[in-house]
Computed example of a mutant assay.
Amino acid sequence: MSSLTVTKNVAATDAAPQMRKRSKTGRGYRIFRVLALVFVIVMFIAPLVWMVLASLKTNVDIYDSSKTFLFDPTLENYGTVFGRANYLGYIFNSFWIGFASTALSLLLGVPAAYAMSRFTMHKSAVVVLLARVIPGVSLLVPWYFVFSQLKMVGGFGVLILSHMFVALPLIVYIMMSFFDSLPIELEEAAQVDGLTPIGAFLRITLPLSTPGIATAGILSFIFSWNNFMFALVLSGSKTKTLPVAIFDFVAYASIDWGGLMAAAVVITVPIMVISLFMQKYVVSGLTAGATKG
């Protein structure tokens, strides 16, 4: 047997334990990844499942642990929500405030983000980022004082403006990253063909930025739909939104858990449906700037 053959056999013998060790390590990592994924899914799904099941139970069944999954379902809670609680009006209020604040924020935020991106307005971007991280709750008292002096508290206008304070920086922040990922050569080529800078933005850049606009709009609408604190302080009896209306099921001495969970389902389902149908836009918009450079 030649020395070369012996060397190969020795190398193969030494490599075999390493390959088995790597295989065990890879198998252990895959098992850990699956377990971690299952844990995250269960932690996310379990409250939603409990909420839906509780919305189909009476208050007595909700407190009975033996009827967690086996019980006689009832739609009485949903009848309470849509019958006595005027939730159709609250749904309209939430949709209108969310749509108006999102549309106005997009109208102002998209051109602002484009200007900051193309003209490298770093100081303005820092201001936008600061507005993004400032807690909106800290501004509720000044807002209430100013808007009460203007006699706007209780109307749709004050709610739309307050939601825009958070939605506008969010939209600008997302769209700046998206515009940074688009090559400026496309706009320069369009201007060579005779378009003005505004025309290049409207006819070239804006259509290409549809995924980013959809992402920013969806996230802005979700924030407005779920917002509680602004509506609690600034809304009136005719402009009450769904998150605030849930408090109708919380009394001083008791809580109507069945009605509360049914109302929570009513709030959650529209957002989940929108998120599922618009998922591809959200993912593409959020990852658009990740591959820049």
Rank of each mutant, 00 (worst) to 15 (best):
P207D: 10
G109N: 10
L139Y: 03
P73S: 04
T58L: 06
G259L: 06
K151M: 07
Q149H: 12
R27W: 12
W257A: 00
G26A: 12
I160G: 03
W143H: 05
S65E: 07
A103Y: 10
M121C: 02
M43D: 01
Y90A: 03
L161Q: 03
N9W: 11
T68A: 13
M19R: 15
N9Y: 09
R22F: 08
L182S: 03
V250F: 10
V233H: 01
D256A: 11
I274K: 01
P47H: 09
L234W: 07
Y252M: 09
L159G: 00
L202T: 14
K238I: 03
L276C: 02
V10H: 09
W143M: 15
A262I: 06
G194A: 05
L106F: 06
Y281V: 03
A131D: 11
S65A: 10
K123Q: 11
F179T: 04
L150P: 01
A214K: 04
F247V: 05
L35K: 00
A125I: 08
L108E: 05
K57R: 14
W96V: 15
N86K: 10
H163Y: 15
M261I: 01
L75W: 12
L35C: 09
V244D: 02
G109S: 11
M43I: 07
A112L: 14
V81M: 08
S254R: 14
G109R: 10
A46D: 02
M121P: 00
L206V: 07
L130C: 13
T268S: 15
G157R: 02
H163E: 14
Y173A: 13
T239K: 01
R118T: 13
R203A: 11
I246P: 00
L159E: 00
V40G: 01
T5F: 09
T268F: 09
T13S: 15
S105F: 08
W143I: 02
A200Q: 08
I174G: 08
S117V: 07
S94W: 09
T5E: 15
R30P: 01
N77W: 10
L161M: 12
L88A: 14
S66D: 05
I198T: 11
G155W: 01
G259F: 10
E76K: 13
H122I: 10
S220T: 12
A231H: 07
I174L: 15
F99T: 15
G199V: 06
T68L: 13
Q279F: 06
I204A: 09
Q279A: 14
M152P: 00
I184S: 12
I31D: 02
V266A: 09
D64L: 02
M261A: 08
N227W: 01
V166E: 09
I222P: 07
F249M: 06
I218Q: 03
A167I: 15
A200D: 09
N93W: 11
A290E: 13
V141T: 15
G199E: 08
S101H: 02
L56G: 04
T102G: 10
S3W: 05
F201N: 03
I274M: 15
I255C: 05
